[in-house]
Structures are given as C-alpha cells and as structure tokens.
Amino acid sequence: MTRGNRILLSCIYWAFVLYVFVPLLLMILMGFKDSKFIGFPIKSWTLDWYLGVFSDAEVVSTLTYSVVIAVLSTLISVVVGTWIAVLLEGRKFLGRAAIFGLTILPALVPGIISAIAFRIYARLLGIEPGMGAIIWAHAVHNVPFVALVVMARLSTLPKSQIEAARDLGADPIIAFLRITLPYLIPAVLGASIFCLLLSFDDFVRSFFLGGYEPTLPVLIFAKLRSGMSPEINAIATVALVLTAAIGIWAERFTRRTNKDAKP
C-alpha cells in the first residue's frame, strides 16, 4: 500500500463521485435556463419553470397520485413482509427453503418481465389497469425487501426476552405485540421508507399497469418522448429533491436507532 497507490485510488473515488453527481447537478441547473431549448451554454436564468410546476394542475395531481400509491402499497408490503419474516426467521419446517426462495422471487425478476407478469396476472384477477393495479404490483414487488430487512433484525432479538414474557404469562400474540414488534420497529420503519422510495421511483410497473392517469415517472417519460424542455427539468428536480430528502432522513434515522440498539 504505497502512498502513490493511495493517491491514485482516492482520485478514482472522487472521479466516481463526480460521475455520480455531475449529471444530476447539470439537470437541476438546466431547470433554471431562460429558454425553451435544453443545452449549453445557459445565457440567462429564470425561476419560471419551477413556478410553472407548482401551478400546473396536472403535475400537482400526478404528484399526489404517486404519493398515495407509494403510501398504500408500502402499508401492504410492510404488513405482509413482516408476517413472512416472523414465519421464516428462526423456525425450521418442511419447505422453509422453498418459501424463502419464493419470498425473494419478485426482487430477482428483471423489471420488464415482472411488469409483464403482473399485467397478465392482473387480468386473471380481474384488476383493471389503474391505481389499484399499480398499488398491488408495487406491494408485491416490495415484499421481499421488507422480509429481508425484518428477518435480519429479528435474528438479533434475544430469545430469552420472548421466553421471559411467556413465563410471565403472556400468550404468543401478546408476547409478539409487546416484545417482538417494538424491537422490530426500526427495521420496519427503515423498510417502509425504502418501499416508499421504490414505489415512488418505479417506472416499468406503473407504466404497464397504469390507466389513463400517470404516476410521476410515467408523466416525465411521456413528456420526454415528445421532447426535452426545462419544464421537465423542474418536475424531475422536484421529484429528485423529494426522494433524496426522504432517503437522507431515513439513512440518519436508521443509523441513530442502530446505535441506540447496540448494548
């Protein structure tokens, strides 16, 4: 590990940081350009595009629509994912490996195939394309992430705590509600935020299962197909700020609770 080596590696790291940030920063910058055409150089600046976003009824209703879908699908994923985790963690039974494999299946199926499979299955279940179908697809797709996160947390719960509760007369349900569930809260919250972001950012499932009303990524996609404009930059920046803020907050939150949890 020579000094030169270290400097070279650090340069690579910072180059990677640039590679990751510069495109997004340029995109944000372009939303302030006082011209209809995307591209450099930027000669004069304006806030009009951003003001336009918040006064555009379509964008605002799309944003609400996306948030509602994200929240409802997350609620389903969290309940189902936690339930599966409680069943799988620390229990041995016939077919456990198969159930575990099936649990993580939706996370492994490549995007387009998962969207197609959901589209076909929605028809079988009689779910019309639209809000319900998107919520359902997002919920199913996000279950594996919740299950994995909750299982990881559950495996660190000392068995003695449950045993103590049971010895003191708690039945399995009360022991679960009073011991297991509070212990799982940080993992459940972390997983919820991850699901919220996954659902809010998802394009391919929303695109194939959506009705006439678009979610935010679908709206941006549709607008992009008819040409780039700073208006799209402003919409995309709003989406970016929202997701990044939630992400950073969640990261800090989970870090703090993890620190607290350590004995």
Partner: peptide
C-alpha cells in the same frame, strides 16, 4: 453515504440527466 444519495433518485430522472449530459449541446 455521499455515493448513496444520487441512487435514491428514480430511474427516469437519472436517465434524463444522462440525456442532458451527452446531448449534442450537452455538457
């Protein structure tokens, strides 16, 4: 964490960012 931040941003938004980067009048 610094590297994680941009990855919370959705697929479409990041694709668009690349379009601006590489366009004929891009950066």
């Amino acid at each position: 964490l610094l590297l994680l931040i941009p990855f919370w941003v959705g697929e479409i938004v990041r694709t668009y960012a690349i379009m601006i980067l590489l366009g004929n009048t891009g950066a």
